[in-house]
């Protein structure tokens, strides 16, 4: 369970969230939407621990992770995975190196096994030796998804992963994400500006409006 209690967050003197409280049950698939600049990315960053709330606290599985401007559990200990809006692959590493970065605690043989499984699951085996700069937009997203899933996070945060893709790449990636989340116990928080994208795999929808997070029915 992820719970946000009375979260207030301002960036550059603009109030992004004003006294927001919200609970997300473990294993649910949640979609978040809202107009550009309303704070969707900020919402994910707060849960990941990349940003801290000015006031209020965040708990993950009843463990206090952030409280009133302090980060109590750093991002890498929260078991979250984050697929960033622009993929954010490391440009100086090839696909395999990108994925292996998050697997360095594992023994070599385990990491290799893990790597091969994740490459085939995400359909990126043929891209293994390529540099991110040589990949198409859709391929970059796939690799970003692979890199995020490799350490087996319990919470998957996705920031508009389908935006800016052509329709074929979009459909393929949507299918991949759907099959991944439906076959696992992960909690998914999926940010999108188009709820149609997620209607077939998200249980609950929220919209960010006027610095509040509001549940949508239906």
């Amino acid at each position: 369970m992820i719970s946000l209690n009375c979260i207030t967050k301002s960036l550059a003197r603009k109030t992004i969230f004003d006294d927001v409280s919200l609970t997300i049950e473990t294993g649910t698939h949640v979609a978040i939407t809202g107009p550009s600049g309303c704070g969707k990315t900020t919402f994910l960053r707060l849960i990941a621990g990349l940003d801290t709330p000015d006031r209020g606290d965040i708990r993950i599985e009843s463990k206090l992770t952030s409280q009133s401007g302090r980060t109590l559990v750093p991002p890498h200990q929260r078991q979250v995975g984050f697929v960033f809006q622009a993929s954010a692959l490391w440009p100086h590493m090839n696909v395999v190196q990108n994925i292996l970065f998050g697997l360095q605690q594992l023994p070599k043989s385990d990491a290799a096994e893990h790597l091969n499984r994740i490459l085939s699951e995400t359909g990126t085996t043929h891209l293994a030796k390529r540099m991110p700069g040589t990949l198409s937009g859709g391929e970059q997203r796939r690799v970003a998804v692979a890199r995020t899933l490799a350490p087996e996070p319990r919470i998957l945060l996705m920031d508009e992963p389908l935006t800016d893709l052509d329709s074929v790449a979009k459909t393929e990636l949507a299918e991949l994400i759907k099959s991944i989340v439906q076959n696992s116990k992960m909690t998914l928080i999926f940010v999108t500006h188009d709820l149609k994208e997620v209607s077939h795999f998200c249980d609950r929808n929220y919209v960010i409006k006027g610095a509040k997070v509001i549940a949508l029915n239906g």
Binding site: P74, P75, R78, V80, F82, A88, G102, Q104, R147
Partner: peptide, 19 residues
């Protein structure tokens, strides 16, 4: 953002800086 990605996947501080 590439740095944020590394903050989440960070194996340890040394590798974070060097790699």
């Amino acid at each position: 953002m590439p740095v944020d990605a590394a903050r989440i996947l960070m194996p340890n501080r040394f590798r974070f800086w060097v790699q």
